[in-house]
């Protein structure tokens, strides 16, 4: 069976796994963004805290995902819960780093002006600093998404959702004609999602960036 025929006969699986893959990545990216931006906002003004948060989230990213999935298997079991927890942990670093970079890149003169206009600390953060840092933050979120799309494929080891199922089923059927098609389909699915997410981020970035800094 040719690859295209394979895709045709398995199209409903392709779509279903793709939706799962996108959903688990989307949820994890959302959680990582909320936690990561909060951590960045909480630490960007203090060198020590900043260094510590970056060191810890960086160390998490160093832990091989295969190992982390297995270590979470004990406390969290199989399927979605360990997958979302691991992906969220992996997603923190780029978001935290870019939040800190973005917030520290805001021109001090602009902040002085805001202070002079009588804006308090919270207003300055919400109305001046975060909007100005937003393009940098969203770039971090985009990097996180691409990284997580790839890692999710490995979550199939712990019965996680997504295209990893195709890849590992292919591995189990090594030597049969369908094996290559399964693995190719899994890889292709992830690539398509990567392109779609990239387009999404480009659009979101355009739409959510303050008019003044576009």
């Amino acid at each position: 069976m040719s690859f295209l025929e394979f895709l045709e006969t398995r199209s409903s699986d392709m779509v279903e796994l793709g939706l799962e893959h996108a959903a688990v990545v989307g949820l994890s990216v959302l959680l990582a963004t909320i936690i990561g931006v909060t951590l960045g906002v909480a630490t960007y003004q203090r060198a020590r805290a900043r260094g510590m948060v970056l060191a810890i989230t960086g160390a998490i990213l160093t832990i091989p995902s295969f190992a982390l999935f297995i270590l979470l298997l004990g406390p969290l079991g199989l399927g979605w819960p360990p997958t979302v927890v691991a992906l969220t942990l992996y997603g923190l670093m780029p978001v935290v780093r870019n939040t800190i970079t973005g917030l520290r890149g805001v021109d001090p003169a602009v902040l002085e002006a805001a202070k002079g206009m009588g804006l308090n600390r919270r207003q300055r953060l919400l109305r001046i600093e975060l909007p100005l840092a937003w393009p940098v933050i969203i770039t971090g979120v985009r990097v996180t998404t691409l990284v997580l799309l790839g890692i999710t494929a490995i979550a199939a080891i712990i019965n996680g959702p997504g295209y990893g199922e195709f890849i590992f089923t292919g591995l189990a059927r090594v030597g049969t004609p369908v094996a290559v098609n399964l693995v190719l389909a899994g890889a292709l699915g992830v690539m398509i999602l990567a392109v779609l997410f990239d387009i999404l981020f480009y659009t979101v970035r355009k739409l959510t960036t303050s008019k003044g800094i576009q």
Partner: peptide, 21 residues
């Protein structure tokens, strides 16, 4: 190159095994 980074490593490894043995 940026988008290529999303290709799962496991897919590359498994493809070497199933496609070329």
């Amino acid at each position: 190159l940026t988008v290529l980074q999303a290709v799962p490593t496991i897919a590359i490894l498994v493809l070497l095994a199933v496609a070329f043995l």
